[in-house]
Amino acid sequence: MKNKRKDKEEYLERLWELKEAGSESLDDFMRAVKDDYDPELLDSLTSDGLVELDEKEKRIKLTAGGADQARKIIRAHRIGERLIFDIFGGDFETAACEFEHTVTAELVDGICTLLGHPGECPHGMPIPKGECCRSKASTAHKQVVPLKDLEIGQTARVAYINTKDDRQMHNLDDLQVRPRSVVKLHQKYPCYVVECEGAHIALDEEIVSSICVWSDNEPNESDKSELLEFGRKHRKRRGLDFLFGRKR
């Protein structure tokens, strides 16, 4: 039963992808699922009212309800990929197994906080408590924020770039402004100046807003004294608390 649900969801995912590609052809669908093609499964999706199938015209498409469900699955799938992709830097196929080896304590704290400090693992074994559980942090230490929310002089690692425009992505990539690069914000006004991999780049607000970074990265040693950096960190965290609280 459980597997069948998973299979159905796989079908809905494929159909969503076809929709994205602008196709309603049954042939395309069969090509997409390859050996997993199962007419019974399709029938049951149709009878659930999730899929419309026209065997004569060889057309298949999601109903409104089906699209709704598919959207949720796809969202979950891609957010998951996104998370692993951003943290491990691209290789999400094999990343999951590497998880416990690669992840930093800081990051575990962040995820722990996001999950509400769970006490047990899915198998029922206790999870050793971390610093974040003891201080009952309600905000993840590491968060993705738009680059423009950094403070001047702060350094951060790029998490992702929100752009649909391929050309803009290329332009930024040519300058090595891309996930995993370290950027430093130098100036916000009259326009943004960012240092990235040895080059200074002037950007307007629109582009800076599309660049998201891991906030609160390691401070740049050569730049400010420890004391200043410390003060800034605290100020920053309060600011984020406020943000987070407002969202809730």
Binding site: N171, L172, C191, A199, H200, I201, A202, L203, I207
Partner: peptide, 11 residues
């Protein structure tokens, strides 16, 4: 349409 501004600055 407005074209976003990206300009590399010489050191």
């Amino acid at each position: 349409e407005k074209i976003p501004f990206i300009q590399e600055l010489p050191a």
